[in-house]
Each structure stands twice: as structure tokens, then as C-alpha cells.
């Protein structure tokens, strides 16, 4: 039981999202990226695989647009990747996502540990790891800020809002890690080159034998805009700008 699964998601960069005047959301200009905290997941999986003496395998469920993620993910040290390339991913909710991932993971032999991030940059719904655990009926540990693997035993520090809890579990298990678990390094040239030679298994929806329909119905998606004064003090030198700001704050009566 030595393979470690890193679940990572290819998401639209939230910094590129445009909100139109009618509050409709324009994602067409948004670049894709590996969800921020999933970079820590990949690094955690690489380290855990080393501790278990096995391989680190990335699993991602995305549309055809997610293809560029493979090179990026593999250059971060994963040994292999499994890419569920399905249009259903664009409509997937937490239920469908977990079903797709669980079905793909079931096809991988010898899985000792499944790692997800606390939450994805787009949904941030923090459901996936516990749901995968339930679907595969594996034990789950969330909010993990530190983990140690000793033989078949995983000891994890959980950061809860009122306490730090240390827990122990026998593998196989599912964990959701916080980004502070490790600093995710930037891959070097050789790592990037090696990525091109690694094995990628591509699965289609039909290969999974899982129901990928969402359980909830999305009825509306709209942008949020903040209406603020947006006044930049740029007249004169810094001293004058600061003076203008101080005067404005006095006038607003917020001091």
C-alpha cells in the first residue's frame, strides 16, 4: 500500500475574472492554473510517497482545457498522472467531483494515501476529501497542518479553530491538507524536462462507470462588484498626498 494520490484541480485564475455591467461573469479571458493550494498537495504527496517508498500519482478531473495542467503538475515531482478528461467536469458539483475522483482512484492499485487540499481556489467548498473518504469508506483527516508517516501509521496535526488536535490513523486514508503543510517549491529545469517523459493515463467519463450528474441545480451565477469611491491622492508630493488623506479621513468622521 504505497501509492500516494494527489488530487489537484485546474481552475480559472480568479484574478482574470471579468464582471460585466449586467453582473454576468466573463471567464473567457481567465487563464487556467493549478488551484493554489493543490501545489502544496502535490508536494505533500511527493514527500509522503518518499516516506512510503511508493509513487506519487496526480489525479485530476477536468475538461479538455485541463490538459496543460499535466505538464505543470508532473514537473512538481509527481511520478505519474491520471487525467479524467470529461466535459461533465464543467458542471460538476461536490458530489459528482468526488464520485469521479473516487472511481478513478479505485482503478489505481495499492493506494495508501489520498491527499486533497483544504479547498479549491474556485469552489472553496472543502467537501472533496471527506466525500471521497465516504465513497471509498476510508478514514478521513481534514485541516492537516503537519503529517508524519511511520510504517503504516499516519500521525497528523489538525488545526481546528479552538485547538490543535493530533490524531493517528492506519493507512489507507484520505487527508485534506492546509497550505502551511509545506512550502511548494518552484520546479527547476530538469524537473520540467522530466515531466514530458512521465506516464499520463487519460480516462473518459465512460471509463469510470460512475454517475457524473450533479446533485444540486445551479440556477444563477452572477458577479459581485464593490462600489467604492476609488479616490487616489496623487496631487503634489507624498507629504501633500498624506495631508489630503488625513483631511479626507477627518471629514468622513471615521477617526
Amino acid at each position: 500500500m504505497s501509492q500516494v494520490i494527489a488530487c489537484y484541480k485546474w481552475v480559472a485564475d480568479e484574478a482574470d475574472i471579468r464582471i460585466n455591467a449586467d453582473l454576468s461573469v466573463d471567464l473567457s479571458k481567465a487563464k487556467g492554473k493549478i488551484s493554489d493550494y493543490d501545489k502544496n498537495v502535490i508536494e505533500a504527496a511527493v514527500q509522503a510517497a518518499a516516506a512510503l517508498g511508493g509513487k506519487a500519482v496526480g489525479v485530476t478531473f477536468g475538461t479538455a482545457d485541463a490538459k496543460p495542467s499535466l505538464k505543470d503538475a508532473l514537473s512538481r515531482g509527481l511520478d505519474e498522472a491520471c487525467y479524467i478528461n470529461a466535459q461533465e467536469a464543467s458542471q460538476a458539483d461536490g458530489a459528482a467531483t468526488a464520485r469521479a475522483l473516487a472511481a478513478a482512484i479505485k482503478k489505481i492499485a495499492d493506494v495508501g494515501l489520498i491527499i486533497c487540499a483544504e479547498g479549491a481556489s474556485d469552489t472553496y467548498s472543502r467537501q472533496t476529501a471527506p466525500r471521497i473518504g465516504a465513497l471509498l469508506d476510508l478514514p478521513v483527516v481534514t485541516s492537516v497542518s503537519k503529517m508524519d508517516i511511520n510504517g503504516n501509521i499516519l500521525t497528523a496535526a489538525r488545526k481546528l479553530d479552538d485547538c490543535m488536535q493530533t490524531v493517528k490513523v492506519e493507512l489507507p486514508a484520505v487527508v485534506a491538507v492546509l497550505p502551511e503543510i509545506n512550502p511548494a517549491p518552484i520546479p527547476g529545469l530538469k524537473a520540467v524536462l522530466a515531466a514530458g517523459k512521465k506516464t499520463v493515463t487519460e480516462l473518459k467519463a465512460a471509463d469510470l462507470g460512475a454517475d457524473l450528474t450533479p446533485r444540486s441545480t445551479v440556477s444563477e451565477v452572477k458577479g459581485y462588484v464593490m462600489n467604492r469611491k476609488n479616490i487616489i491622492f496623487n496631487e503634489g508630493d507624498l507629504a501633500e498626498q498624506v495631508k489630503a488623506l488625513a483631511a479626507a479621513l477627518r471629514k468622513e468622521g471615521v477617526l
Binding site: 518552484i186 520546479p187 527547476g188 529545469l189 520540467v192 524536462l193 514530458g196
Partner: peptide, 11 residues
């Protein structure tokens, strides 16, 4: 890249 070159970005 399509023509066969290996492209390494972020380096």
C-alpha cells in the same frame, strides 16, 4: 512545441 521542440516555461 507541436513541431517537436521541448518548451520549458517558468525557467
Amino acid at each position: 512545441e507541436e513541431a517537436g521542440a521541448i518548451v520549458a516555461c517558468g525557467i
